[in-house]
Lab assay of single mutants.
Amino acid sequence: SEIVKHAEEALERGEFVRIEHNGRVIEIRNEEALEELRRWVEK
């Protein structure tokens, strides 16, 4: 997914991403959060 790709690229640069999706906000700061995002987006 485009969202996950964006988050992965930001993590590689040492940045973090805040994503709003279906009214929820998730902050991607590490691999664990990235995995959570993947599960969340796939639903």
Rank of each mutant, 00 (worst) to 15 (best):
Ser1Glu: 11
Ser1His: 13
Ser1Tyr: 14
Ser1Arg: 14
Ser1Asp: 10
Ser1Ala: 14
Ser1Met: 13
Ser1Asn: 11
Ser1Phe: 14
Ser1Gly: 09
Ser1Trp: 15
Ser1Val: 11
Glu2Thr: 10
Glu2Leu: 13
Glu2His: 10
Glu2Phe: 12
Glu2Gly: 09
Glu2Tyr: 13
Glu2Pro: 07
Ile3Asp: 03
Ile3Trp: 12
Ile3Gln: 06
Ile3Ser: 04
Ile3Thr: 05
Ile3Tyr: 06
Ile3Glu: 03
Ile3Arg: 04
Ile3Phe: 07
Ile3Cys: 11
Ile3Lys: 12
Ile3Asn: 04
Ile3Pro: 03
Ile3Val: 10
Val4Gln: 03
Val4Cys: 04
Val4Gly: 02
Val4Glu: 01
Val4Asn: 01
Val4Asp: 01
Val4Phe: 09
Val4Thr: 04
Val4Pro: 02
Val4Arg: 02
Val4Met: 11
Val4Tyr: 09
Lys5Pro: 02
Lys5Cys: 05
Lys5Glu: 04
Lys5His: 06
Lys5Phe: 05
Lys5Trp: 06
Lys5Val: 05
His6Glu: 10
His6Met: 15
His6Tyr: 15
His6Trp: 15
His6Pro: 02
His6Arg: 15
Ala7Cys: 08
Ala7Asp: 01
Ala7Tyr: 03
Ala7Glu: 01
Ala7Gln: 01
Ala7Arg: 01
Ala7Leu: 05
Glu8Phe: 11
Glu8Ile: 13
Glu8Asn: 06
Glu8His: 09
Glu8Met: 15
Glu8Lys: 15
Glu8Trp: 12
Glu8Pro: 01
Glu8Cys: 12
Glu8Ser: 12
Glu8Tyr: 10
Glu8Gly: 08
Glu9Phe: 06
Glu9Met: 12
Glu9Leu: 13
Glu9Trp: 08
Glu9Asn: 09
Glu9Val: 07
Glu9Ile: 09
Glu9Tyr: 08
Glu9Lys: 11
Glu9Ser: 09
Glu9Gly: 07
Ala10Val: 05
Ala10Ser: 07
Ala10Gln: 06
Ala10His: 07
Ala10Thr: 04
Ala10Phe: 06
Ala10Trp: 05
Ala10Asp: 01
Leu11Asp: 02
Leu11Glu: 01
Leu11Met: 06
Leu11Trp: 09
Leu11Gln: 02
Leu11Thr: 01
Leu11Ala: 02
Leu11Phe: 10
Glu12Ile: 12
Glu12Ala: 15
Glu12Phe: 13
Glu12His: 14
Arg13Gln: 05
Arg13Gly: 03
Arg13Asn: 06
Arg13His: 05
Arg13Cys: 08
Arg13Asp: 02
Arg13Lys: 08
Arg13Glu: 02
Arg13Phe: 02
Arg13Ala: 05
Arg13Met: 05
Arg13Pro: 01
Gly14Phe: 05
Gly14Pro: 01
Gly14Tyr: 04
Gly14Ser: 04
Gly14Cys: 11
Gly14Met: 05
Gly14Thr: 01
Gly14Asn: 06
Gly14Trp: 03
Glu15Leu: 08
Glu15Asn: 07
Glu15Gln: 10
Glu15Ile: 11
Glu15Gly: 10
Glu15Asp: 10
Glu15Phe: 08
Glu15Arg: 07
Glu15Pro: 01
Glu15Tyr: 08
Glu15Thr: 08
Glu15Val: 09
Phe16Val: 13
Phe16Gln: 07
Phe16Lys: 06
Phe16Asn: 06
Phe16Thr: 10
Phe16Ile: 13
Phe16Leu: 09
Phe16Gly: 05
Val17Ser: 05
Val17Trp: 07
Val17Phe: 12
Val17Asp: 02
Val17Lys: 03
Val17Met: 10
Val17Leu: 14
Val17Ile: 14
Val17Gln: 05
Val17Thr: 08
Val17Pro: 08
Val17Tyr: 12
Val17Gly: 03
Arg18Pro: 01
Arg18Met: 10
Arg18Val: 15
Arg18Thr: 14
Arg18Cys: 14
Arg18Asp: 03
Arg18Ser: 10
Arg18His: 07
Ile19Asn: 00
Ile19Tyr: 08
Ile19Thr: 03
Ile19Val: 13
Ile19His: 02
Ile19Ser: 01
Ile19Ala: 04
Ile19Glu: 01
Glu20Met: 13
Glu20Leu: 14
Glu20Phe: 15
Glu20Gln: 09
Glu20His: 11
Glu20Ser: 09
Glu20Ile: 14
Glu20Cys: 15
Glu20Tyr: 15
Glu20Asp: 06
Glu20Trp: 15
His21Ser: 07
His21Tyr: 15
His21Gln: 05
His21Met: 15
His21Val: 15
His21Gly: 01
His21Cys: 15
His21Ala: 07
His21Asp: 03
His21Lys: 05
Asn22Arg: 10
Asn22Gln: 10
Asn22Gly: 10
Asn22Phe: 14
Asn22Leu: 12
Asn22Ser: 07
Asn22Tyr: 13
Asn22Cys: 14
Asn22Glu: 11
Asn22Met: 14
Asn22His: 13
Asn22Thr: 04
Gly23Tyr: 04
Gly23Arg: 01
Gly23Thr: 01
Gly23Asp: 04
Gly23Ile: 00
Gly23Ala: 02
Gly23Phe: 04
Gly23Asn: 06
Gly23Trp: 02
Gly23His: 06
Gly23Pro: 00
Gly23Cys: 07
Arg24Ala: 07
Arg24Ser: 06
Arg24Val: 10
Arg24Met: 11
Arg24Tyr: 12
Arg24Gly: 05
Arg24Phe: 14
Arg24Gln: 08
Arg24Glu: 07
Val25Asn: 04
Val25Thr: 09
Val25Gly: 02
Val25Cys: 13
Val25Phe: 10
Val25Gln: 05
Val25Ile: 13
Val25His: 06
Ile26His: 07
Ile26Lys: 01
Ile26Glu: 01
Ile26Gly: 00
Ile26Thr: 04
Ile26Trp: 15
Ile26Ala: 01
Ile26Asp: 00
Ile26Tyr: 14
Glu27Gly: 02
Glu27Gln: 06
Glu27Arg: 04
Glu27Trp: 15
Glu27Ile: 14
Glu27Met: 11
Glu27Asn: 07
Glu27Val: 13
Glu27Pro: 03
Glu27Ala: 07
Ile28Cys: 04
Ile28Trp: 02
Ile28Glu: 00
Ile28Arg: 00
Ile28Val: 11
Ile28Lys: 00
Ile28Phe: 03
Arg29Lys: 11
Arg29Asn: 13
Arg29Glu: 07
Arg29Tyr: 11
Arg29Ile: 14
Arg29Phe: 11
Arg29Cys: 14
Arg29His: 11
Arg29Ser: 10
Arg29Trp: 11
Arg29Ala: 10
Arg29Met: 11
Arg29Val: 14
Asn30Lys: 02
Asn30Thr: 12
Asn30Arg: 02
Asn30Leu: 03
Asn30Glu: 04
Asn30Asp: 14
Asn30Gly: 07
Asn30Gln: 02
Asn30Pro: 01
Glu31His: 14
Glu31Pro: 11
Glu31Leu: 15
Glu31Asn: 11
Glu31Arg: 15
Glu31Thr: 13
Glu31Met: 14
Glu31Trp: 15
Glu31Val: 14
Glu31Cys: 14
Glu31Asp: 08
Glu31Gly: 09
Glu32Phe: 09
Glu32Lys: 10
Glu32Leu: 09
Glu32Thr: 09
Glu32Ala: 13
Glu32Trp: 11
Ala33Met: 12
Ala33Lys: 06
Ala33Phe: 05
Ala33Cys: 12
Ala33Ile: 06
Ala33Arg: 05
Ala33His: 11
Ala33Gln: 14
Ala33Asp: 15
Ala33Glu: 14
Ala33Ser: 13
Ala33Thr: 11
Leu34Gly: 00
Leu34Met: 06
Leu34Pro: 00
Leu34Arg: 00
Leu34Val: 06
Leu34Trp: 02
Glu35Ala: 12
Glu35Asn: 11
Glu35Gln: 10
Glu35His: 07
Glu35Phe: 06
Glu35Val: 07
Glu35Thr: 07
Glu35Leu: 08
Glu35Tyr: 06
Glu35Met: 10
Glu35Trp: 07
Glu36Ile: 12
Glu36Met: 13
Glu36Phe: 12
Glu36Trp: 15
Glu36Asn: 08
Glu36His: 08
Glu36Thr: 10
Glu36Gln: 12
Leu37Arg: 00
Leu37Val: 03
Leu37Asn: 00
Leu37Glu: 00
Leu37His: 00
Leu37Trp: 05
Leu37Gln: 00
Leu37Met: 03
Leu37Tyr: 07
Arg38Glu: 01
Arg38Asn: 02
Arg38Cys: 03
Arg38Tyr: 04
Arg38Ser: 03
Arg38Lys: 10
Arg38Phe: 03
Arg38Val: 05
Arg39Lys: 13
Arg39Pro: 00
Arg39Asp: 06
Arg39Tyr: 08
Arg39His: 09
Arg39Leu: 11
Arg39Asn: 10
Arg39Thr: 08
Arg39Trp: 09
Arg39Ala: 13
Arg39Gln: 12
Trp40Tyr: 06
Trp40Ala: 05
Trp40Met: 07
Trp40Pro: 00
Trp40Phe: 06
Trp40Asp: 02
Val41Thr: 05
Val41Ile: 13
Val41Arg: 03
Val41Asn: 03
Val41Phe: 13
Val41Pro: 01
Val41Cys: 08
Val41Met: 11
Glu42Trp: 09
Glu42Pro: 02
Glu42Asp: 10
Glu42Gly: 09
Glu42Met: 13
Glu42His: 08
Glu42Phe: 12
Glu42Ser: 12
Lys43His: 12
Lys43Phe: 14
Lys43Trp: 14
Lys43Ile: 13
Lys43Asp: 11
Lys43Leu: 14
Lys43Met: 14
Lys43Tyr: 14
Lys43Asn: 11
Lys43Ala: 14
Lys43Gly: 12
Lys43Arg: 13
Lys43Thr: 11
